[in-house]
Structures are given as structure tokens and as C-alpha cells.
Design a protein around this nucleic acid. Sequence first.
DNA 1: GAGTGGTCTAGACCACAAT
DNA 2: TTGTGGTCTAGACCACTCG
Lengths: 246, 246
Amino acid sequence: MTRRHQQIANDLREAISQGRYPVGTALPSESELATAHDVARGTVRQAVSTLLAEGLIGSRQGARRVVLSTTPSQSFSQLRSFSEWAHAHGHSAGGAVVSSTRRPADPEEAAQLLLPVGAEILHVARLRTLDGEPVLLERTAYVDWIAEAVERLADDCESVTQGLYDDVGLVLAHGEHRIDAVTAGTLETRELGVRRGSPLLRLRRTTTTAEGHPVETADDRYKPGSVVFAIRNSTQSNPLARKPAG
Amino acid sequence: MTRRHQQIANDLREAISQGRYPVGTALPSESELATAHDVARGTVRQAVSTLLAEGLIGSRQGARRVVLSTTPSQSFSQLRSFSEWAHAHGHSAGGAVVSSTRRPADPEEAAQLLLPVGAEILHVARLRTLDGEPVLLERTAYVDWIAEAVERLADDCESVTQGLYDDVGLVLAHGEHRIDAVTAGTLETRELGVRRGSPLLRLRRTTTTAEGHPVETADDRYKPGSVVFAIRNSTQSNPLARKPAG
DNA sequence: GAGTGGTCTAGACCACAAT
DNA sequence: TTGTGGTCTAGACCACTCG
């Protein structure tokens, strides 16, 4: 079932990406859109608010909404799942488990997963490839109630997210991400084929279910030049934060 | 004037950050909040939708809203302005102009600023310090209609954003950011005091006015260990995108 | 001053979750 | 079955922008 506000948002998104409203131009007014789609004004407002949150348009009281960008941002699942993201861009994704061990959580992992220090977790290191090229080394700590399902996955499983959904119906709904740069260590030097000491883009993330229960916390290190992270923000919606390192 | 929905959002944000609703617990229902604040249900929904966008809470049809995090994210102005961010964290910010020249825009700058290649821009390199320590080398290209105001700023101007607002009333409203990792070059080696070839966190950003007119495009390179970028996202709101490098 | 988006109300019905 | 959030309506008033 597509809701009316979704339909209106889709229509606008498509019109923008097709160039009917170039960057800098104004969108039709709320009342015009309401009349055109035969809905109440509130429904139109709900539709444009999603485009606002996506950073596609800007809004100011008294003036018509303005197009800021023509390229929509990606879905959460694409951000979370390496393979889903790769496929959406026409690349093939691969993966291989480097190591898989159960051990007590270190203080950092315990804090991220809301567990007591020393609680048992499953630690998995995976090498991910894009079109056969290694681009990413991923170290993940899983909470124990999902550990068995993770261990049942094939070593070269292409999509961990999909595998866990198929097996136990797990749906990941929220994520917290921290991005910084680090130096390649011994493991990255060997697995990613980079020089020792070269820069890597690091993404640390903790993912939770819809109820807010932590499932995994990961440390992903990207080979330089392979991936860029992009954010649009504004006075009206601000997802990105700069933090002191720690 | 604080709107009623803002007041409700502030109350909830404060209650969450004070631990009245720990991570994982449920918020009161919409109708309870509506009764408690003596407003219509729509007003409550507007309030909780801002917390949803901030990633503080999660929401599912049929179940009460759940607290995901107790730490609010920062404002857009803090992200844009290095000095404002520093002050909010109890640090002192400094700056010094390394170079300032007018020259034709290169293809990358022209594309970001929606200018023809070769149009004149003002290029400024600045070293930014945190508590006296150099942490960031910033190269910015400004469009010509703001160039004179930028040149009027003091060389050790602490906040460029504030200076431009005071001088010509410029307000920056939207930003697009791309994050990756690069290797320190000659200039960074000298100014940031890092070893040649060491990793730097790079943030490239383009900022526009509320109307969507580009004002500046910058390339900021952070000393490793000085800052981390953080993002919260979910199936319900997704600001961050992963892009193939290019 | 006319038009626009921002706020707010008071209702209605539906889809989904919990029990 | 009951309660919850999600959708939608039809109106009202206000703050702001722009010609």
C-alpha cells in the first residue's frame, strides 16, 4: 500500500531528478500541490517534509521551497549492508571470514552493546571485496543471542544482513556511526594489500533493533580511494555531528 | 517565541538526557502527552518527530516510542563553524590565514559552486587551532560576491561565519559534506606538524544560502585523533550515504 | 497587500502490537 | 480486544517574504 503522501513525495522526487525543477528553482506552493493531487494541505506538508529530511529541498517561512540537490540519498539498509549498497551501484560484493572467535567483551565493546564488561560476545573479522578487489576489513562483535545464527552463516556469505533475516527474522532498524582516519596495521597491510602506515578511513558503528536492543558493534576500515561518505545537512535538519576524539 | 511543539520536544529531550527515560524504555503515549501538555495530538506528533529526526527515539506503528540514545546531536551551525563547535565543548579556537589569493576556479571548484570553469574565486588557506594546538588545515574557495567581505576579515579571525554575518548579514543554511581519508602532503606536514605520509581525515564541504545559492566550497584536513564525525540514522530517517570514490 | 509556509485544532479511520 | 502510532481531513490564525 503506497500512502498518498508517499506518492506525492515520489512524484516530486522524480520530477526533481528528471530536471523538471533544477537546483535553485522553486517548487509549486502547498496549495497548488494540494489541488493538483486532490488532498488536504497536511498531506502535502507530510510529503515535502520527507524531501526536506533527505536534503533535497530547503524551506523558509514566507518563501516557496527551493531545490537544493537533484540526487536522492540512499536508504538505511544500503548504508548498513555492504552488499546491498554494492548491488545498487552495479558492483558485485564478496566476503570472506578471516577469523571467528567467542571471547569476553572488552570495555569498548561492552559499552556499545550495553553489556557488562567480560560478557561473552562473538568476534568476527571479515574481508569484503568490491568487483573482486579487497576494499574493506571489518571487525564485528555480536551479542550472544545472535551469535549462533552468525556462526551458521557461510564463510563467504555475501550479505550478513540478508542471511540473519532469512534465518531468524532479525531486522536492524537503527545505527550510530563514528568516522575517523587511522593508520593501517599488520592485518590491514596483509589483507587489503596496502603499505604499512598508509591512511585508512575508519567507520565504527553500532546497530540496534527497532526496540533499541544493540545487536552488533563493528570497526570497518576502508582502503583509501575506494569509498567516500556523504552527508547533506542544514539548519532545518542536522544528522551529522563533530565530536572530540576519544 | 517558543512554539508549543518546541516546548514539548525540549521537555522530552531534557527528561531523556536526565535519565528519566533510560535507553530502551518507552515514552508516554501521544494521548498521554497531549493531555499532560493540554494540546492536540498533532502538536505532540510534531514534537516527537523532531526527536525522531535527531535519532534520540525510535518509532513503530502499534508500539510506544522507544529511547535509543540519551545524547542529543549538535546543531548545524556548530557543524559549520569550527569556533562555535569548539566553544560549545569548552575549548578555545584560533585561526591564522596561511594564504589568500584570487584566481580562476578549477573544474572541481566550479562544479561545486555552480560557476563556469575559470570564473574568478577567492582561495584562502587557514590553519585552525584548538586550545593552541593546530588540528585542521582548511582550504576554501569563495564565490566572488562574498570575496570582498572575506578579505576584510582579520587574519586571525576566530569565526569566519560570525564575521560574515556581522559584516554583510550572510546566513548559511545548507551544507553538503563528503568525508574520506588522505595522506598528508607538504603543506600539512609543515603546518600541522605531522609526519609526511601520515593519515588525515578529510572533509570536503559546499555551503549554500537558504535560497540554495552556493557560497563556498572547502577542503578541510584534520590531524588524526583530533576529531571524530558521528551520525545516527535508521530506517525512519537516513541522512548518510556511502559513495563510490571519484 | 497578497501569497506562502509554520503552527495548531478536533475530529476520523486504519494498520499494527501487545496481551 | 484494546491501545498505540500512522494517515488524512478541513478548517483557522500567524509570521514571514516579496513585488
